[in-house]
Design a protein around this nucleic acid. Sequence first.
DNA 1: TGTAGATTATTAGCGTCCAAACAATCTCCA
DNA 2: TGGAGATTGTTTGGACGCTAATAATCTACA
Lengths: 166, 166
Amino acid sequence: MSGAHTLSETERQVENKLSGMTLDFDSMAAISNIFRAANATRNYLERTVLGPHELSWTGFVVLWVSWIWEPIETRVIAEEGGFSKATLTGVLQTLEGKGYLKRDPGTGDKRLVIVTLTSKGRALMKKLFPDFNTHEQQVLSGFSKTEKRELTVALRKITAFTEAQD
Amino acid sequence: MSGAHTLSETERQVENKLSGMTLDFDSMAAISNIFRAANATRNYLERTVLGPHELSWTGFVVLWVSWIWEPIETRVIAEEGGFSKATLTGVLQTLEGKGYLKRDPGTGDKRLVIVTLTSKGRALMKKLFPDFNTHEQQVLSGFSKTEKRELTVALRKITAFTEAQD
DNA sequence: TGTAGATTATTAGCGTCCAAACAATCTCCA
DNA sequence: TGGAGATTGTTTGGACGCTAATAATCTACA
C-alpha cells in the first residue's frame, strides 16, 4: 500500500464503497504505515548493507542470531528470528553452502542440530553488524532519542497485543 | 527477531561480541521492533480475518486496491500495493482462478491489462473490509487517537527517508 | 513514414515462507 | 521395562516475491 493515490483520495473512495459503515481511518492509516515502513526499511537495508555481500534479509537474521548466541540450537534460531523451522532448514543449507556456518548433531539430545559460525562467518558479522547499525541510525536520523524510545514502546505494545491473541 | 531472549540479555551479549565499537541501541531496538510489529500484526490479521476466507495477505491487498479503484490498470495495482509487476502477475492468476476478478486488455493502449472485480469479488470485499478495519482497531485498542496519529507520522518519516535514498 | 528506444505484462529461475506429513528421538508413567 | 505420546529437523507441495530476459506495443523524432 504505497502510493499513487493520496490518503484523502483513498478515504473518499473508500467512503463511496462503504457509505453508512463506520470505519476508523486513524487505525487504518497507522496499520498500513507499519507495513510500508517495514518494507521500505527492509529494502533500504538490503540495498545498502546486505546487497554488496549477496546476503538475503533472512540469511542475515539467521547469521546475526547465530553469531550472538553460538553455539545455538536451530529451534532457538527459528523462534528468535520469527520464522518456521521449515524455512530455517532451507536458509541454513544456503548459509552452510556459502561457508558461513556449520551444523552438528546435539551431543545429548540427538534430535537437535547445533549451529556454529565458521571463522569466515564471524569475520563477516564483525564487519557487517556495525555497518548495519550505522544505517539503522541513518534511517532514524530525524528522530531524537526520546522519539526512538516512544516509537519502540508503541511498536512493542502492538506486538504484545497481536501475539497475545491465541 | 522475536523473543526467546530479553532485550537486555541481547544487548549484553552484543556488547561482548563488539566491545569497543559504538552502537546505537535505541535505533537498533526501534528498527527491529518495526519488523516484529509488522510480522505479528500480519500474522494476527491473516489468522483472524483472512484465514477463514483462504486469502493470502498479498491477495487481500490486490483485491482491496482493485475494489477501491476498479477498473484499474495492473501497473497501478503494483505501484499502489508496493510489489513488482512480476509478483502481481502470479497473484492475479490466483485471484482470477478463484473467481474474484477478471483481466481484460486495455481498449486504447493494448499493452495494458485492466482489472475488474466480479460480483463475487465485490461481495467478498464488502464483507471483508469492515471486518479488517474492526481488527485494525482491536490491534490499536490501547492507543488514543493522538497516539495513532503520532505513530503514523513517525512511520511515514521512516518510509520517506528510506525511499528517498536512490 | 519509419525506425530506434521506451514501456507494458509475462515468463523463467531462484530464494524465501508456510503447513502438513514424516522419521528419528526423547519423555513419561504404568 | 516398555510403549504411547510429544518434540525435533527435514521433506514435500504450494504460494510469494524478486531480477533479468522476452515479446508486444507505443512514442518520438528524423
